[in-house]
Nucleic acid binder design. Structure first.
Lengths: 364, 364
DNA sequence: CGCCGAAATGTAAACGGTTACATTCGAGAC
DNA sequence: GTCTCGAATGTAACCGTTTACATTTCGGCG
């Protein structure tokens, strides 16, 4: 029974397989496989021959068969709360870029911060991916332990949990630096619009705010207002802040989306930013510089976050898992624009370049 | 040789397979498979038994093996110019939602509108996906014909090409409706900031603008300014428009990102929107309503675009390809806010609900 | 000229499912 | 009790690779 005999036995037009290539090139499938995977010595001559036949036949290896055999899918799974929005899509982009270079694919799914949905997604990815990048700022990871415990290399994004490798943003440092900046400008009654209660980023930013407030000597608690990271919640929060009898002089929104809402609310009351009220955010979303006035904020290199997390999974995949969990922290930088009322000369401050945590950059 | 004998022969901890389940449940692998796939009659009793064992063993079918056997990956590929940004990430979200419901996964990659990169991505997806959703507003699809021609079900997003099913947005209708609206408000010297030259969306929007200008009687050509769909290019374009000696009374940016730049530029010149200059955009990105002043724009249901395109691929996958290419068009709706200077009473106009093309909705 | 060992290649057994086909089971008809 | 026939289940081939192990090839050497 020649190798070609069983071509197109069942459904479909039948694709060309490694057997077809082998037959046509007059060698065995093993040789073809070796040539294609650059393994073990194959005579130059044979190699060229095989390659040529493969190309002429438009042979494309069947990934399923390959995966089944080598037990690798060359795909990594990404589970995020959402798959849209400035932040998440930028993370995806960062990962995609790195993955592509490494010959990997990405499988993306949003969990909507819902425990069951998350479990579902995780279950569905099982077996499809060689590693997992999970971001779950809201859902307690312990709840997912069962699914995550299986021996898949895992990297946590912006959330920490014992025993797992994690990559996070320096939320605390960023918030703290922003507060120092506001302090420098003379502000001390600084209101803070918080993010969702159990969101890890949000609570770190809050921690930075509180710590700085304590240093400044303000009573932070009175000035904290709840928010949900949405423009709408920022708008609402600003409303409540502006209504205070002892009005703060600055508003620090825990993310830019809320800052956008704040700007809108402040303008709606006929007040001027930054003259009547300084407004700052966190994230440096693309439109931040185009707001009126341009928003002072904390810049986060999100794509880098994605890139690093990919490197981390790959690392664990490649050397088998048994290395201990690491924890990386991506530095942030202050971007001073006009909404904070700072003099707007172009100036760039870098502390001893290199391992700086939070750099500061001012722009026009 | 009992089925369990060959467990863990090669690498890795060895996962539990269908054979293990079969052995433990005292049935054959065929029966297990049938139970799990709800195929052909299996006795209620047996079924329960198998299900129980499977659960207790935490059995998860190996997708690679399954794919290899049934020649389906239950995954569809998505190729977009970029994977981040408001528009693209929203498309991904729409597709993800629909896909998840149907038990499908998505494989995403960005092409950066580069021909070679696109070919690469397409090649890498071959065999991994059951169908493709491709958006390539810039790259001529003919260049990709070779890769696309293979028998994979394909749906084009926002671009049309002979012989392919396509889903597009009613860019023409949306732009035209916006122009009618501006006309109603008394504008006739309306500048238009175009999108990238060979971008399909951009040229349709331009077509809508031109057609409307002809009806209004203006000489459109003078008033068209190049743009690149970025905030920055909008800013620059606005600058050149404002410098004209016979200044237009309104600026229509081909997308919201550019409109953001325009607002910023107009403000920078100390002019007021809409009093001195009406500004409108296209897309209705999330922050549009929070801009100062809130932006009048054309709303596009992007998630819906994603959803529909998914339905379309699935359709073709399920019934085998041989149905003729369809072409669907997603309607748009006018969102009147304040940047156009219209009276801002809340009013909602719907023409005979149902197959309306462009609806108009005004809001506070 | 036969022998040796390394290099090159071939053979066939996995990988873990699905499913065509064969087999067994069991209830009702006679 | 036997026969019949559909329902339930089992057997094993097949999906297309990779790769351990077996086999062949071949250049040099005694």
């Amino acid at each position: 029974m020649s190798p070609t005999t069983r071509a197109s036995r069942r459904r479909r037009p039948a694709a060309v397989t490694i057997h077809d290539v082998a037959a046509r090139a007059g060698v065995s499938v093993a040789t073809v496989s070796r040539v294609l995977n650059r393994k073990t010595p194959v005579r130059e001559e044979t190699s060229r021959q095989v390659l040529e036949v493969a190309r002429s036949l438009r042979y494309v290896p069947n990934v399923a068969a390959r995966s089944l055999s080598i037990r690798r899918s060359h795909t990594i799974g990404i589970v995020l709360p959402e798959v849209h929005g400035d932040f998440f899509s930028e993370v995806i982009r960062g990962i995609d870029l790195a993955a592509r270079r490494a010959g990997y694919h990405i499988l993306v799914s949003g969990s909507h911060s819902d425990r069951n949905e998350m479990l579902e997604v995780l279950a569905a990815m099982r077996g499809r991916v060689d590693g997992l990048i999970v971001m779950s700022p809201d859902v307690a990871l312990s709840a997912l332990h069962d699914q995550l415990a299986d021996q898949l290399p895992l990297v946590l994004l912006n959330s920490v949990a014992e025993g797992h490798t994690a990559i996070t943003i320096d939320n605390y440092g960023g918030a703290h630096a922003m507060m120092r900046h506001l302090g420098t400008l003379g502000h001390s009654r600084i209101a803070f619009i918080k993010g969702p209660d159990r969101n890890a980023d949000a609570s770190e930013r809050l921690r930075g705010y509180r710590h700085a407030m304590r240093q400044i000597g303000g009573r932070a608690a009175d000035l904290e207002v709840p928010g949900e990271f949405s423009e709408e919640s920022g708008y609402a929060a600003a409303g409540s802040i502006l209504a205070r009898h002892e009005r703060p002089t600055a508003i620090f929104a825990a993310n830019d989306a809320m800052a956008v809402g704040v700007l809108s609310a402040v303008a709606a009351q006929g007040l001027n930013v930054p003259a009547d009220m300084a407004v700052v955010g966190f994230d440096d979303i693309p439109i931040a510089r185009y707001l009126a006035p341009p928003l002072t904020t904390v810049k986060v290199d999100i794509a880098e976050l994605g890139r690093r997390s990919f490197e981390a999974v790959i690392d664990r995949i490649d050397r088998g898992l048994p290395d201990q969990p690491r924890h990386e922290c991506i530095p942030t930088s202050l971007v001073v624009r006009q909404s904070c009322g700072a003099a707007t000369s172009l100036r760039r401050t870098k502390k001893a370049s290199g391992k700086k945590k939070t750099t500061r950059q001012e722009e026009i």
